[in-house]
């Protein structure tokens, strides 16, 4: 690992200032992704700003919703009584990711910032526009079994690897950030980017901006929810495809639906058209099958991930059935 400067500020302004002063500086929280990338030589920051002493660990209920401090660990969020009671989808998604050890270390802010697991991004001998803009995309014509179905570009077909992000997207989270120019709130749907011509940019954060909290609005989706993750082994693997489903069902009628898929795009893939289709429909296998087909509109597969064209709608269908309690 390259040598680097190390600073440990105690307050948010000190942390954001430390970033903007440095050429190649990064925040360090749980380190589960960043330290790995530094060992692999994928990133080589000249300076690390250790933010673990910042007062950003609280999880607290607010007017109708909840505010999750950016430094709350994944385990703390998944085990929190308010999250388990009001946002069970988030707990399910977090517990589907990584291992207990990693969830104890990884933070909510860090999980939002998690880099792709595309093997071409990790292998510094390979071309990758995300790691080295202009070098080309190794996955486009290479081994692309894990890659995107939606919203990819000719520059990058990588996917966002997070499970937590998929649930946060379905639950309409807001990401609060603080920078030297002040504070702002970013809707989760605007936080992560599609690759376009600039796959090196994973998200819409400006230089020096620090995630301080993730807020969730009051949610009626505390009962009929499911997070289904399909992967190469039963546990501790990244998703081939995942589906986050939250339904508000009254008298067997779907009053509202929130749906997102993981493992299929450069950002968590919200299914707004499918949500609109489901609203007002009865809970039935036929309705869910139609929904799963609508969700796949615009999907484009590559040489090795064609199986995802079948796996993705099946995953969503199964998650809809489980969330609604439909036995068929």
């Amino acid at each position: 690992m390259n040598q680097f400067q190390y600073v440990r500020p105690a307050q948010v302004p000190g942390a954001t200032k430390a970033i903007t002063n440095g050429a190649n500086t990064q925040f360090l929280a749980g380190g589960t992704n960043l330290i790995d990338l530094m060992k692999m030589g994928v990133v080589a920051p000249e300076k690390l700003v250790d933010i673990n002493n910042l007062p950003l660990k609280k999880i607290e209920g607010n007017a109708g919703g909840i505010s999750i401090g950016a430094l709350a660990s994944n385990t703390e969020v998944a085990e929190h009584p308010l999250i388990k009671a009001n946002y069970p989808l988030l707990a399910l998604a977090i517990n589907a990711g990584a291992s207990p050890q990693l969830r104890n270390m990884a933070t909510v802010g860090g999980n939002l910032m998690q880099r792709t697991r595309c093997p071409y991004f990790f292998d510094t001998a390979m071309p990758c526009n995300k790691r080295m803009p202009g070098s080309g995309c190794g996955a486009l014509e290479g081994y692309n079994r894990m890659h995107a179905l939606f919203g990819a570009s000719d520059k990058c077909i990588a996917v966002n690897p997070s499970d937590m992000n998929v649930a946060l997207t379905a639950l309409d989270a807001t990401v609060h950030v603080s920078g030297v120019k002040g504070k702002r709130a970013i809707k989760i749907s605007d936080f992560h980017r599609l690759p376009g011509q600039h796959p090196e940019l994973d998200n819409t954060l400006q230089k020096g901006e620090l995630i301080t909290s993730v807020d969730l609005p009051a949610s009626p989706f505390n009962k009929n929810v499911h997070y289904l993750k399909v992967r190469d082994r039963t546990s501790y693997a990244f998703a081939l495809v995942s589906a986050a489903v939250a339904l508000n069902i009254e008298n067997n009628t779907i009053q509202g639906a929130r749906l997102a898929m993981g493992g299929v795009a450069h950002k968590p893939w919200r299914l707004t058209e499918t949500e609109a289709f489901l609203k007002g429909k009865p809970v039935s296998l036929d309705v869910f099958k139609q929904a799963a087909q609508i969700a796949m509109q615009g999907a484009k597969a590559y040489e090795h991930n064609k199986f995802k064209l079948t796996l993705a709608p099946n995953t969503l269908l199964q998650a809809l059935k489980t969330a609604s309690g439909l036995k068929a």
Binding site: R8, L28, T32, L48
Partner: peptide, 28 residues
Amino acid sequence: DRGQCGACTVHVNGVRVNSCLSLAVTNE
């Protein structure tokens, strides 16, 4: 040495972590 195998698991303040992905200085 990459957080994938768990051989380096230790407890920090009673919580299990992968010591290979934790910089020593962050354990002050």
